[in-house]
Design a protein around this nucleic acid. Structure first.
Length: 401
DNA sequence: CCTCCACCGGAAAGCCGGGTCA
DNA sequence: TGACCCGGCTTTCCGGTGGAGG
């Protein structure tokens, strides 16, 4: 593109009509004034937390619901209101919010406690100290500030899956030897994880439980409508668009986040076509684009060894009449390693990598028995076939074959 | 009915690079 | 500087197993 034309491009872009008025209400970070269809849960939560205002310790709460059912936003909103009242009335309550999924900051015992201590104004090095030491600093900080705490642990299942329930165990029994009281709100979208907890932790954590059911299509519709009013210009949405969008999202799990994303991407697609209206076919396109981007993104962000394994599976895949087994993948992988000058991992490790791809939904790997011919995994790709070539190219670039 | 394949998958331990502290 | 800690990734070791074929 010549220089002049690039400038014109930007100018044209700036003047171009967009279907959007203000995109922010469709973005993931946006918190609406009122949270629709979560009145019941808000009330429950408020009821449980309210005693904190009188200096009592609220019960610990376990909050469960699928992704995009408003768990986080409702919890944050409710606790924020609580904190505001407390502040006004001079009641010492402090809210701590921790998202346990954040890589390299709160996903291990050390890091979680360190982060908590930091929230209380202590400075803790990111590594190096014994965990014991970090606990001590944290406890000390708690004791100095005479107030009650509400600790929100979002995506708590991530923490337990990775590092066990040690941290949780220590946190739940904190009140036994320390003056200030701590209430824990655990948020999870995986109900099964509770069963892996130490029974003592489990009963302590779920003194109260609140369930966030998925939104149905009608609820999604009203959510979308309220956001669309802020985000889009007048009359740019084709008749029935919102309904369709809601129906799509309701079909898989009633995920409001996904519904909003669908609507936003559909709008962006319409913009790119310089269309005056967002049409229903844009929604279909948006759905495909979102899936595709997600897949490509997860693949390209994998470490090199993972990409090599995936590439091996991919080379075995084309017009395969029968299925792919671990042993075959490993053979191809070994050759690939020597070709690319990479050190070869053990089959045990590669086997783990394959099951990680299975969990990411990129690959389907079921353990089967071939009787006389042993046990193995039956592996197949889970991505749409029209992406095979694209993925293969991307991988080739990344690992330079 | 028994055997025995080709892996599975848990446990433990090692290595390495990040760090603290005295 | 040396002893020690944490966490991610990997290896080593090894008991376990569904079912085709004898």
């Amino acid at each position: 593109m010549a220089e002049g034309s690039l400038e014109t491009f930007f100018e044209v872009f700036l003047r171009k009509n967009s279907v959007f008025f203000d995109k922010k209400a469709l973005q993931a970070s946006y918190t609406p004034e009122t949270i629709l269809h979560r009145e019941e849960q808000t009330k429950q939560l408020a009821n449980i937390l309210a005693p904190a205002l009188k200096g009592d310790k609220p019960s610990n709460i376990f909050i469960y619901g699928k992704t995009g059912t408003g768990k986080t936003v409702t919890t944050k909103q409710t606790t924020k209101k609580l904190a505001e009242v407390a502040e006004r009335e001079n009641i010492p309550i402090k809210i701590l919010y921790i998202n346990c999924k954040l890589k390299r900051s709160t996903d291990t015992e050390y890091r979680l406690i360190a982060q908590l201590a930091r929230e209380l104004g202590k400075s803790i090095p990111p590594t190096g100290l014994p965990t014991e030491e970090v606990y001590n600093t944290f406890f000390k900080a708690l004791n100095i500030q005479q107030q009650n705490y509400i600790l929100i642990l979002d995506e708590i299942d991530q923490l337990i899956n990775k590092t066990g329930d040690n941290a949780l165990y220590n946190l739940t029994r904190i009140n036994e030897d320390i003056e200030p009281q701590i209430s824990i709100i655990g948020i999870s979208n995986d109900l099964m994880f509770v069963e892996r907890l130490d029974p003592r932790v489990r009963s302590s954590l779920s003194e109260e439980e609140i369930v966030f059911p998925p939104y149905n299509a009608f609820q999604l519709q009203s959510i979308l409508k309220s956001r669309a009013e802020i985000s889009f210009n007048k009359d740019v949405l084709e008749q029935g668009l919102i309904e369709k969008c809601a129906a799509y999202a309701a079909r898989d799990h009633g995920d409001a986040r996904r519904a909003l994303e669908l609507l936003r991407v559909a709008g962006e697609i319409a913009d790119r076509k310089s269309a005056k209206k967002v049409t229903i076919t844009d929604i279909d396109e948006a759905e495909q684009k979102i899936d595709k981007d997600r897949i490509i993104d997860t693949i390209t962000t994998q470490p090199k060894q993972y990409q090599l394994v995936l590439y091996s599976i991919l080379t075995l895949q084309p017009n395969r009449r029968n299925n792919i087994f671990t042993g075959e993948v490993y053979e191809v992988y070994k050759k690939l390693c020597s070709k690319t000058n990479t050190n070869i991992l053990t089959q045990r490790r590669v086997s783990d990598i394959i099951s990680e791809f299975d969990m990411l939904g990129i690959v389907n790997a079921k353990v089967i028995s071939k009787g006389r011919y042993g046990r193995t995994r039956d592996i197949s790709l889970e991505v749409p076939e029209n992406l095979f070539a694209k993925i293969k190219n991307t991988l080739e670039e990344n690992i330079n074959i």
